[in-house]
Amino acid sequence: MKNYFPLILLAVLLLNCSSDSDSSEDIPTESMYFPPISGNVWETKSMSELGWNESEVQPLLTFLEEKHTKGFIILVNGRIVMENYFNGHTATSPWYWASAGKTLTTATIGIAQQEGLLNINDKVSDYLGTGWTSAPLAKENLITNKHLLSMTSGLDDGMGNGNSPAELQYLADAGTRWAYHNVFEKLQDVIADATNQSFDAYFTSKLKSKIGMTGTWLAVDEFNVYWSTTRSTARFGLLSLNKGKWNSEIIVPEAYMMEAISPSQSLNNAYGYLWWLNGKANYRLPQTQLQFPGSLIPNAAADMVCGLGKNDQKIYVIPSKKMVVIRLGEVADGENFALSDFDNQLWAKINAVID
């Protein structure tokens, strides 16, 4: 009888070696990097290390410049891979976030809720008192903080963008209609009431200073708009990528952060708590009650979430790629409230570089 033991032993050894080489545990995973809270130090990562197609970088940069971009950053695992400025803008120049800054209010609400100062399921009138709208009292009392976070207040978005009681009129019961509306800013008043300090003071102490952001809130056409450098915008994108944690410190509770970047209601699956969500079966857009089939930005990753601001201010967070992309600048093409054709065009150019 032949001795098969050496052959069996060899097969087992080969199988073990194969298993070891395929084990995900043996593949080094680069840790998430967070820049220091102060100073200009920020680690970088080269495109060659990432295996990116560097021949496609110049077409991307040309496109960005032609589309009136001011600042552009790509982070991977927190490290800067691309950082470019155009059209007279510099690393120290501030620019407005427009509605991409809604996400700052979302985060601050989550912090205040974690501290037990408010609850998103409470009525807005619990904090602002009755009469903050011109809706009948019974209808006003239906509106919760969560309805403001999810754009389902039921208030008439056709009355303009002001937030005086006369401009906040009843159209539908809260939770029954999705409509993009600047009434979300009332959440900043809720925070001020709940914390016994100004929204800006609470935001600065609990969020801005914790992650080393610079910038300021400025009143523009009666609205509170955030202005900062492109790097400060990227810091917030990095915090969001890391589920609300900066290094080992929890800034925004992870459970709340994950809730914020999930569908917040069934009327517009592509909307969380003031965050836009890619990869859903359909979506709605500002200024219309139409529902559109397909993904918000088809060329981008399905798990991408976005802070989208008027005239193409963009915060893109892509968990599957450990990536943050920031674009600030003038409007790329025609004026828009959030999404535009520019998003899909930009991601076609980015994909040519990173894929």
Rank of each mutant, 00 (worst) to 15 (best):
K310N: 15
P136Y: 14
M213R: 03
N119E: 02
N282L: 11
Q114P: 00
Q113H: 11
F86W: 09
S46Y: 05
E54D: 15
N268E: 09
G131S: 10
L64E: 01
L10C: 14
S240R: 06
L290K: 11
R235A: 00
E222I: 12
T62M: 03
I350G: 03
G309C: 13
T144D: 00
V57F: 08
T233K: 02
W52L: 13
S295L: 01
A348K: 12
M151D: 06
L14Y: 13
D126P: 02
N53P: 11
S232R: 07
D126E: 12
G71D: 05
N163W: 06
L13A: 10
T229M: 10
V331C: 05
I251S: 05
I74Y: 02
P136Q: 15
I73D: 01
K102L: 04
P293N: 08
F184W: 04
N299A: 13
I73S: 02
G237F: 02
F236I: 13
Q291T: 15
Q287L: 12
L207S: 03
T230P: 13
A194D: 09
W97C: 08
Q58P: 01
L339N: 02
F292E: 06
Y271V: 09
S24F: 13
N16V: 15
L187H: 00
T62I: 08
A107W: 05
T144P: 09
S205P: 04
N268T: 04
L10Q: 13
I350T: 07
A166Y: 12
V225H: 05
V252T: 08
G131E: 09
T214P: 05
L128Y: 01
K186F: 11
M47H: 04
K322I: 06
G78E: 04
A260Q: 03
N119T: 10
Q188D: 06
W132E: 08
G175A: 00
L14H: 12
Q188H: 07
F184H: 11
W276V: 13
V41L: 06
K314I: 15
H68P: 05
Q345L: 02
P286H: 10
H89E: 13
E167M: 10
S266T: 07
L148R: 05
N87S: 09
L142H: 03
G101R: 07
D173F: 04
P319H: 00
Q265D: 12
D156G: 11
N247K: 05
A281R: 08
W347A: 10
S38R: 14
E254F: 00
N77M: 06
S232I: 06
A98P: 07
G307S: 05
A270C: 09
N268Q: 09
V41W: 01
S232L: 03
P36V: 08
I350A: 06
V190E: 10
K245I: 06
L238I: 10
I261D: 00
L346E: 09
E115H: 03
I261Y: 08
S99Q: 04
V317L: 12
G110R: 03
N344H: 04
S24Q: 12
A219T: 13
A107F: 00
N121L: 08
V183C: 10
Q345G: 01
F292K: 02
L285E: 07
N53K: 09
N269G: 13
A192Y: 02
D20R: 00
L117T: 02
